[in-house]
C-alpha cells in the first residue's frame, strides 16, 4: 500500500510542478526574434571569435539588428553567408574562399635543430628560448599553438610542422594570430602553387639551417612565363592574380620549397 502511495505522491508532485512550469513558461515567455535562431544555424558555430564578437550567439544578434554584415563570419562559408543574406533580405556576397597555409617546409631531418626542446608544449614559450628549437628563425616551431587555437580541428602536426586540413579549414584566422613566428597565412583557396618558406637570410645562411629553405636564387622567376614571381626580402613571392597555377616554377625550384599542391595530391593518389 505504501509503495502505491509513494508512487502516486511523487507522480502527483511531478505533474503539479510540470503544470506550474508550463504555466510559468507561457507567462514568462520572452519574445525573441526567430531570425536570430535561423541566422545562428548558418554560422560557423565554433565560437571562434574571428568576427570580433563574444560568440556565435552575439554575432547572430547583431546581424539581425542590422549592425553587421553576414560576410563578417568567414567560417560560415559561401553557402551560409548567402543563406543569412536571404533570411535578412539583404544583398551580401561571400569574400573569396581562403585557406590557412603553413609557409614552412622544415620537417624533421630537413630543418636543422638548434637544441632538443623538452619543455612546456607551446611554440610561444619555445620561441623565446635561445631563438627556438630549430635553427631557422622563420620556421614553424611545431609545438602546436595553432592546433590548440583551431576551433575546427583542422590542424595537425606532421613531422614537426603544422599541417592544415583543407576540407576542415574555415579560414577564421585564429591560427594566423596564434603563431608566434607568423608562419601561417590566409591565401586564396584556389592558389595551389605556394612558396613554403619565408627565410629572409642570404642563400648561404638559409641553406645552412634548412635543406628546404628558399635561397632566393630567382630560378622560378626566370621560369615563370607570366611574370607572377618576384624575389623580395630574399625569398620568392607569387602574385596570385598573375599566377595561372601552371606549376612550372615548382618543377625547377632547386630547394623544393615551391609546392604544387595539385601535383602533390595527384602524386599521392598514384602512390596509393
Amino acid at each position: 500500500m505504501t509503495i502505491l502511495y509513494a508512487g502516486v505522491v511523487l507522480g502527483a508532485l511531478g505533474v503539479l510542478f510540470g503544470l506550474v512550469l508550463t504555466y510559468a513558461g507561457k507567462k514568462f515567455h520572452v519574445e525573441v526574434d526567430e531570425r536570430i535562431e535561423l541566422v545562428k544555424n548558418c554560422l560557423g558555430g565554433a565560437n571562434c571569435g574571428a568576427c570580433g564578437y563574444a560568440g556565435c550567439d552575439q554575432f547572430a544578434k547583431v546581424v539581425v539588428e542590422g549592425k553587421e554584415k553576414p560576410s563578417k563570419c568567414v567560417p560560415a562559408g559561401e553557402k551560409g553567408i548567402k543563406e543569412m543574406a536571404k533570411i535578412m533580405g539583404i544583398e551580401d556576397t561571400a569574400p573569396e574562399k581562403m585557406i590557412a597555409r603553413v609557409l614552412c617546409g622544415g620537417i624533421h631531418g630537413i630543418a636543422k635543430e638548434r637544441y632538443h626542446y623538452d619543455g612546456y608544449k607551446s611554440c610561444a614559450v619555445a620561441a623565446g628560448i635561445a631563438g627556438g628549437p630549430k635553427e631557422c628563425m622563420y620556421s614553424c616551431i611545431g609545438l602546436g599553438d595553432c592546433m590548440d587555437h583551431c576551433a575546427f580541428n583542422a590542424i595537425s602536426m606532421v613531422d614537426g610542422v603544422a599541417h592544415v586540413d583543407e576540407d576542415k579549414c574555415r579560414a577564421c584566422g585564429t591560427c594566423v594570430a596564434a603563431c608566434p613566428r607568423g608562419a601561417i597565412q590566409l591565401l586564396p583557396a584556389s592558389q595551389s602553387v605556394i612558396v613554403t618558406c619565408r627565410n629572409k637570410d642570404v642563400a648561404k645562411f638559409a641553406r645552412a639551417v634548412c635543406m628546404n629553405a628558399c635561397i632566393g636564387c630567382g630560378r622560378c622567376k626566370k621560369e615563370c612565363a607570366y611574370g607572377a614571381i618576384e624575389v623580395i626580402d630574399g625569398y620568392a613571392h607569387i602574385d596570385p592574380v598573375k599566377c595561372t597555377r601552371c606549376g612550372a616554377c615548382a618543377e625547377v625550384c632547386p630547394c623544393k620549397c615551391i609546392v604544387d599542391l595539385i601535383k602533390q595530391s595527384v602524386g599521392a593518389m598514384e602512390r596509393v
Partner: peptide
Amino acid sequence: PLGLTFMETIAFILVIAALVQFVEMFLKKA
C-alpha cells in the same frame, strides 16, 4: 501526513530541480 518520510531525498530533488527551472524563467523575464 502520508507517512512517506523515507522519500524525502527524492522529493527534495524534485522540488529543487523544479524551483531552479522556475527561478531561471522568472529571472529571464523580470
